[in-house]
Design a protein around this nucleic acid. Structure first.
Length: 516
RNA sequence: GUGGGCGUAGCUCAAUGGCAGAGCACCUGAUUGUGGUUCAGGCGGUUGAGGGUUCGAGCCCCUUCGUCCACCCCA
């Protein structure tokens, strides 16, 4: 026989066989039930979406991990996560639902990454979204839901790490850094701590060569050669956009300077401001990095971290509500009965998806080899509905579990694939009709039946039934055919008896219940 | 993207540079209507692909592809 080229599964894609598949299904079913008991309605959404859905806000890292292609002149992508689809569906079809709206989902997602242990290119998420509610109660519900789901599964030794994107974002926005730079810094918050200032600056220069000067200046940290003209700039730097705009307008007017009539005055001032601010990127970058380093040090038990966070917020005059709200969330979580010992705060954490606007969190537990792996992640994304064209700004938060990861953490209680309870062996061609009838009767009683369809000796058929783990075997041969009966053989006790066809189903049911 | 390991029968893997093997699975028989054991036999290979060194390459060298693992990132 000429052997053709073997076709293998794509890299990072896995075939999931019976025992493993049964475990996944059990995990998923338990989580879905858990979410349902919290009134999260299950919905199912397409796996294929418009590429645009993920480019808008998910972030650049996800964009180049997208399975994305042109199909009939349309850009489509396999979903790398489900939140965007949920909100897309909400904007499209569900905006007339009373809020808050609670939704759950389960299904595969695809990310083109280098596969390795506990990381596949296709994996399964079960997640929940809470739409139209914000504040500590909503955040705490989401956190509690994620944690208690793990407990439902029997994962007891897990840790909850909570971060927050708003402090840094507020600080960076007030600084007036260029949008690109702000995004870069937000993305590299965690890298700053893990790999240090130098590595972050290097990567900044690689990605955005135009900031090279700024990065260098920030590194040498003495970009402040004050000139006279610098004073106005420094004043402007401290202002918000609209304040600065007004100040420049007033200033020009007071000097009786007229902008050329063919150009929009506002636009000219915008440009002027932008120019001034670009010149100021270096010292601002320095400020930003200092702030980020201090923020990154704020990690540990909430009681240890919060005082430092408060002091930092005070020092930079950041919105007090952010931390107060976070504390209330933690208190509320305690009311749910979550043991505070496993909760960590980490202001240096950031996440791969860039739509988060507030609370972010991750759940970790130890894999069998002792290495901690992430089981779930989520957070708050209050702008995503608007980004996707929602008619009203709608706060939202959610999270998702990785089913395969959960399985790797749970003890594999060797539950075997469902075994056929009864194996039916017609000995000769003439016996098949009777065999089919018997099988149908048994199945009508909810009993799993495997029918022998291969030409084999009785000996080999029994051997096969045995290996399959059948509890009972029904044999129909010449004698039985004549007597309108069958042999019922108990594979465990090795005992067999002839049973009339009329009584067979009843007796099989009895025998199986004895086997239980 | 960077670094390492491994590609040999359907599966899991052996084989100092010298006849390509074992276990499992499948099939046949010992036992023609009775099982997980045993015994005998059978099927099964372009050693991932291409090139090089050599009297001789599964083994050494180069290239390439595949795959696993680590970094990175994440579920």
């Amino acid at each position: 026989m000429p052997s053709a080229q073997k076709i293998t599964a794509l890299r990072g894609m896995r075939d999931v066989f019976s025992a493993e598949y049964a475990r996944y299904q059990a995990i998923q079913a338990r989580l879905e039930r858990h979410l349902r008991l919290h009134s999260y309605i299950a919905i199912d959404l397409p796996i294929l979406e418009n590429t645009e859905l993920y480019l808008r806000k998910s972030g650049e890292d996800i964009a180049d991990r997208l399975y994305e292609f042109d199909f009939k002149s349309r850009r489509v992508a396999l979903r790398p996560e489900v939140t965007a689809s949920i909100l897309r569906a909400y904007v499209e079809r569900l905006q007339d639902e009373p809020l808050p709206l609670r939704i759950q989902y389960s299904g595969p997602v695809f990310r083109y990454e280098k596969p390795q242990q506990h990381r596949y290119r296709q994996f399964t998420l079960t997640g929940a979204e809470l739409l139209g509610a914000d504040g500590p109660r909503a955040d705490a519900e989401v956190l509690h839901l994620a944690c208690s789901g793990l407990e439902q599964l029997g994962v007891t030794d897990y840790s909850l790490t909570i971060g927050h994107t708003a402090l840094l974002e507020e600080f960076l926005n007030r600084l007036g850094l260029r949008k690109q730079l702000v995004n870069f810094l937000l993305r590299n918050m965690e890298n700053l701590r893990k790999r240090g200032l130098k590595a972050v600056l290097e990567s900044l220069e690689t990605i955005y060569p135009e900031f090279q000067g700024a990065a260098l200046a920030a590194e040498s940290a003495n970009a402040n050669d004050a000139e006279q003209s610098q004073r106005l700039i420094n004043v402007l730097r401290e202002m918000t956009d609209s304040e600065a705009h007004q100040a420049v307008t007033d200033f020009l007017h007071s000097l009786n300077i007229r902008i050329a009539a063919n150009r929009d005055e506002g636009e000219v001032i915008e440009r002027l401001l932008r120019k001034i601010r670009e010149d100021q990127q270096a010292p601002k970058l320095q400020l930003a990095l200092d702030f980020m380093q201090r923020l990154g040090d704020l990690a540990g038990a909430p009681a240890d971290v919060l005082p430092g966070a408060r002091a930092l917020a005070e020092e930079f005059d950041l919105d007090r509500d952010i931390l107060m709200s976070l504390e209330r969330t933690l208190n509320c979580l305690a009311e749910y009965g979550e043991s505070p010992g496993r909760t960590q705060l980490d202001f240096g954490m950031n996440r791969g998806l860039h739509y988060y606007t507030g609370l972010i969190f991750e759940l970790h537990a130890a894999a069998p080899d002792g290495e901690p792996i992430q089981l779930a992640g989520g957070g708050r994304y209050d702008n995503l509905v608007s980004t996707l064209g929602g008619s009203e700004p709608t706060p939202a938060a959610g999270f998702a579990y990785g089913i395969e990861r959960l399985d790797s953490v749970l003890p594999s209680d060797n539950d075997r694939s469902p075994e056929p309870a009864v194996f039916v062996i017609p000995v000769a061609e003439e016996d098949y009709a009777a065999g089919i009838g018997i099988a149908a009767d048994l199945r009508a009683q909810g009993i799993a039946v495997e029918m022998s369809i291969v030409d084999r000796t009785l000996r080999r058929s029994l051997r096969h039934a045995d290996r399959r783990g059948a509890a009972l075997v029904v044999i129909i041969g010449e004698d039985e055919r004549r007597q309108r009966a069958a042999i019922l053989r108990d594979m465990r006790s090795h005992q067999e008896r002839q049973v009339g066809l009329a009584d067979l189903t009843r007796i099989v049911v009895e025998r199986l219940s004895e086997h239980e």
